[in-house]
Design a protein around this nucleic acid. Structure first.
Lengths: 248, 248
DNA sequence: CTGGTTCAGGCAAAATCCTGCAACACATAT
DNA sequence: ATATGTGTTGCAGGATTTTGCCTGAACCAG
C-alpha cells in the first residue's frame, strides 16, 4: 500500500468518526506503529488533523471542543449587542435557548417594555429579573439536554401567538441546507416559532456559518435577518446577503 | 477512549447541566476517580470550568450563583427531609414555589423515578438536574414576585392532571382560617393544585403555624398532611392532629 | 465531634512517543 | 552494470504521558 493511499484512508477515517486510534490504524493497515505515527505527524503538520496522545481527532471535533460556551463569549456578546437593537417597545418576541440568547437577555435595556415568549428555563430566569419585560413561559415537558420545554402542548401554545420577532440561537446555518439542528424536539419547537413570527432572526457565531446538521428547521430563505460577530461586509456572509437576507 | 474525548465529554456535560459530579463521570466514562480528578484539574487550570468539592461547575453558573434566602435554612431542610419520604416511584407530583420546596428538590433520592409538575422556575431548575425525574413545566405568565407561572392557561393545564401528591410551600396556616396567602395569582394556582391532587401536603415552618393572611387557598380540612420542623408530638400541632390531619 | 467522602501528591506499571539508525526499494547518473 | 541519492519503512532504546493505586490530609453532613 502506498503512503498516500494510507494517509487518505486515515483522513477518511478521522472525518467519518471524528477520531482515530493509532493502535486501530496499525492493525487495519498492517504497518508498524512508527509508520502510522509518521503519517499522523505529517497530516497534523499539514493541518488536516489534530494529533493527540494515542491517536488523532478531526479538526471540527477539536474545534467544538475548544469553542464551547465560555470560549467564544466575546463573539456571543457582540452578536447579542446587535440583536437587542431590533427589539422595540410593545413587541412580542419568541426566543429559543442557547448561550447567545442568554447573553442577549442580559443586555436588554433597562427601560425596554416588551413581552417575551420562551420555553427556555435559563432564558426565563434572565428575563424575569428585568423590571419591564413580561415573560410568558411556554409549558410542556422539560428536555434535560436543552433545558427548554418540548412537545405538542408547547407547539400548540406557540401557534396561539403571532410574534413580531423570533430570535433563534443557531447551531448550524448554510445557504443550501438552511437552518439545521440535531435534536428533533428542539427542531419542532423552532419550526413552530419560525412559522408564528413576522421576522425571523438567526444568531450565529461565524464558525457555525456554512455548516449543517442532520435535522432541518427551515430554509435559508425563511430567515429574515442573520447576525454574526463579523462585519456585515465580510466575504463569508456575501452569499446570504445575495440571497436577500438582511445581514448585521 | 482518548483523553481529549473524555475532556470534551466533561465540558459538554458541564455546559449543558451547569455542573457535574465526579462520581457520575467515573461511572459514565469508566475510568478511575483519579483520572477524572486530573481531567477536572486540567480543565479548571485552563479556565474552562470551576472545580468544587465533589465535581465541577460551569463558569457562568458559578458567577451567576446568587445565594437566595437562607433564612431558617436548617428548619427548611428538616421539613424537606421528611417530605421526600412521601414520594414514591411512578408518582405524579405537583409542587408550588418557595424555598422549602427548593430544599426538597435538592434532596430527592438519586434513584427516584417520578413526574413533577410545577410552574416554579427555580424548582424546575433543580428537578431538571435529576437523572430520573420528568419535569412538566406549567406554562403561562411568569410572576416576577413569586417566580412561578400564573394565569388561566396555567390553571387549565393543572386541571388536566390528577396527581398523587401536592406539596404546598405554605406562608400561613391556621386551623380556622385554613391555608392562606397574600398573592391572588398564586392563590389561584394553589387552589387548582389542591383540587387536582389525591393527597395535599403542607410544608410549613413552625413560625407560620397559627398565622393567617388575606386570601384563602383552602380549608384546613383539605390538607391531608402537615409537615413542620418540629416533633410531631409538639403541643403547637395538637389541634391539627385533632382535626384529623396527619402531622409529620 | 464523628464517620464517610473527597482530595492531593507520590509511586509504579503500562502505553505511547520520539530519535537515530540500518535495511530496502526505486530512480537516475556515471 | 554500477554507483549514488532519495524516500520509505521497521526496529531499538530511552523519554514522556497516562493511568490506577495508595496514604494521609481535608472536607462535609448529621
Amino acid at each position: 500500500m502506498l503512503k498516500e493511499e494510507r494517509q487518505n484512508f486515515i483522513l477518511h477515517e478521522v472525518n467519518v468518526h471524528n477520531k482515530v486510534l493509532t493502535t486501530y490504524l496499525v492493525e487495519k493497515l498492517g504497518v508498524s506503529e512508527d509508520t502510522i505515527r509518521r503519517d499522523l505527524n505529517e497530516l497534523a503538520e499539514a493541518g488536516r488533523i489534530i494529533k493527540v496522545h494515542g491517536g488523532a481527532l478531526s479538526r471540527s471535533f477539536h474545534n467544538s471542543f475548544n469553542s464551547t460556551d465560555i470560549y467564544s463569549l466575546a463573539e456571543k456578546k457582540a452578536i447579542a449587542r446587535k440583536a437587542v437593537h431590533l427589539i422595540q417597545d410593545g413587541m412580542f418576541v419568541f426566543t429559543t435557548g442557547g448561550t447567545t440568547i442568554l447573553e442577549m437577555a442580559r443586555m436588554l435595556p433597562e427601560n425596554l417594555r416588551a413581552t417575551f415568549f420562551t420555553g427556555s428555563l435559563p432564558a426565563a430566569f434572565e428575563y424575569v429579573e428585568h423590571p419591564h419585560i413580561d415573560v410568558i413561559l411556554i409549558g410542556d415537558r422539560l428536555s434535560k439536554n436543552s433545558r427548554i420545554t418540548v412537545g405538542g402542548a408547547a407547539i400548540a401554545q406557540i401557534r396561539q401567538v403571532k410574534a413580531d420577532l423570533c430570535f433563534l440561537g443557531t447551531n448550524a446555518i448554510d445557504i443550501h441546507a438552511g437552518l439545521t439542528d440535531n435534536d428533533l424536539d428542539v427542531v419542532q419547537i423552532k419550526k413552530a416559532m419560525v412559522e408564528s413570527s413576522s421576522r425571523v432572526v438567526s444568531l450565529s457565531i461565524s464558525e457555525k456559518v456554512n455548516t449543517s446538521q442532520r435535522l432541518k428547521v427551515c430554509d435559508a430563505t425563511d430567515i429574515d435577518t442573520l447576525i454574526t460577530e463579523l462585519d456585515p461586509d465580510d466575504m463569508l456572509l456575501k452569499p446570504y446577503r445575495a440571497a436577500g437576507m438582511e445581514v448585521l
